[in-house]
Design a protein around this nucleic acid. Structure first.
Lengths: 344, 344
DNA sequence: CATAGTTCCGTAAACGTTTACGGTGGCCGA
DNA sequence: TCGGCCACCGTAAACGTTTACGGAACTATG
């Protein structure tokens, strides 16, 4: 005699009533519910997840899919850890278990997702490292699996997304640098069609245009989003005959490599080139200090979780007015890396 | 009509035979097995995991528990990502699904583990960030849940573990530095009772003793395993009147902070102080280059997976002679950070 | 030919839940 | 008194598998 049956026998009531009591159904006497909960705690009863999954066709698991190994994510990965943390706190309130599904570098993300879904692993999914054209979207939409993405994509199937505010960052940065007298300004963009990084480039161009300036195509650098990428950009940029006086480093981690590249060339950020980047735990140890955007990753995770739950029928009533699609603004923290200004 | 029943009906055989065919049981005609597999592929049938879990009492899931948010892990987290990758490749061969269980900074790891286990989440677990005295060990042992740990602990319940070769690193480092004429050598250790970091300190002392030297207690620095920790160590160390001429930075990421601390004081690694640390993707961007130990994280993950499977009855025959307890040696990559030597 | 053994397959129970359905008893109003 | 309603509870089916058991057909052995 195990599980709920044991509990029922111990209380001398039927298993149906026990189940109803535990699941908060209305049609059970409050007095008996009290007894059931008490006995459950006493006997240390916890419902068997396989049993309820089988019956309800639901797993109570949400998967957060990330890529490992490959340098696509690049974020130094503490980024995702923090976001995950925020997501977790929301789901915990609903007794949903959050697990990280790390797609190995050896496996195709699409195949991996297919396996996960075929196995009926999760009730909902969070996708990161979205691609410009991402087949996963349609796949999930066709199977009616609720999901939300961290990052935009051109493949829109109506799912909720959250993303960084590329446009806002570009606008703010350009305005700031132009005000300091710069007119040859370089920007970086993701090397592949990850996310909608091109929005950053586009908006930079528009912002420059508003000041009567143009974005030189030679000053758009494609970079892997890691230290090596930034280092490589520095090498390319410093080899130019007519090198820019300022640069926007849109990714979190590339500033570290860029600094290294500059110092090897005997140059100093903020003195020889103005830099605006993004803050990260690692960037705090750069010298001179980095001027860059900062982001509450945890809040981002919370918003991500709420957006997902808002689309799941069983939970949507908890979040009637969640923002389903939202760019996440970042604050600019001023450092010394963009101190370099040109005479008017 | 769904699932295996549909498949059976389509083939006009019994569901029992279908199940046996799919699960590779011997008592089924090879010809029918072929047909079943064919039809399964055609109809896109995949067994319902809840059903088999309920019946077999097994989930086919292995959980890799990590801590998030808190600075305990510190490894810049790419460390775990890489290890995870290695684990994954092994499990994939056995159709085991690996998920990452990230314990939030807000939750007690013991409570978190309790929840995971109560839910019957996984067939086996990998624990990281082991503590000097770790209650999780006995908890799992009592429930007879197979697990392996990445890191040693004084709480030994006979489970397999893999760990870094603290003794080897200490011995190699001390010998090397002493050969360069250093006799005031500092070492770092984890700030809390994480892992068995004290082994590093102990072995350093023994190695020094073998050279007729002693380890000054004032030169043992306790450090959080992240950039800030290294920075703090630098500040303490540089403020000393009789400061050491060399230091061992046992953690992967603290060198970055230590470098920063030195440069702020106008000092240069490898010129004013000899440093031996540990390599990481980030440390490649340090200048001067770091002399440090390097580790095949992926291989470590593979060994970890094999050690776990070796203790699980259903898989142990695949790994008859897996090494269950092993320190993982690292190679020393020579850089410029320990160039500083003293005249004999 | 009788017997034993082997190979293959069908039957049905079991895993632990949830939930539709129906039933009992009490209360209330007509 | 009766019918109806309500609050509560028990019964049993269902979810999709796996597997112990037994049986049928066939082969080998004497």
């Amino acid at each position: 005699m195990t599980g709920i049956r044991r509990l029922a026998q111990h209380l001398d009531i039927s298993i149906g009533t026990v189940s109803r009591a535990l699941n908060g159904r209305p049609d059970v006497n409050e007095e008996t519910r009290r007894k059931v909960l008490e006995a459950a705690a006493e006997l240390g009863y916890v419902p068997n997840q396989s049993g309820r999954s089988l019956r309800q066709g639901t797993t109570n698991i949400i998967g957060f899919m990330m890529q490992t190994g490959t340098e696509i994510t690049g974020q130094g990965d503490t980024f995702f850890m923090s976001v995950f943390d925020g997501v977790q706190t929301v789901f915990a309130r609903h007794h949903l278990d959050l697990v990280a599904l790390l797609c190995s570098s050896e496996e195709d993300p699409d195949d991996y997702l297919r396996r996960v879904v075929a196995r009926g692993f999760a009730d909902g999914l969070i996708l990161s490292a979205t691609q410009r054209h991402d087949p996963r979207f349609e796949f999930l939409a066709k199977r009616k699996i609720p999901f939300v993405t961290l990052g935009r994509s051109l493949t829109d199937v109506g799912q909720p997304w959250l993303d960084l505010d590329f446009e806002g960052m570009a606008q703010t940065s350009i305005d700031r640098l132009v005000a300091k007298g710069h007119h040859r300004i370089a920007v970086t963009r993701p090397h592949d069609d990850i996310n909608l990084g091109h929005l950053f480039v586009d908006q930079s161009a528009r912002a420059l245009a508003a000041h009567g300036l143009t974005l030189d195509p030679d000053l758009v650098f494609s970079s892997k989003p890691n230290e090596a990428g930034g280092y490589h950009v520095a090498q390319q940029l410093l080899a130019m005959k007519d090198r820019p006086t300022a640069i926007l480093l849109v990714n979190e981690t590339i500033a570290i490599g860029f600094y290294r590249g500059m110092s090897e060339a005997g140059l100093k950020p903020g003195r020889d080139i103005a830099i605006i980047g993004r803050q990260s735990p690692q960037s705090h140890f750069l010298s001179p200090s980095l001027t860059g955007f900062t982001l509450s990753r945890r809040d981002l995770g919370i918003a991500l979780a709420e957006a997902l739950l808002a689309t799941m029928p069983a939970f949507s009533h908890f979040y009637p007015d969640a923002e389903l699609r939202k760019v996440w603004s970042e604050d600019l923290v001023e450092g010394e890396s963009d101190a370099f200004s040109l005479p008017a």
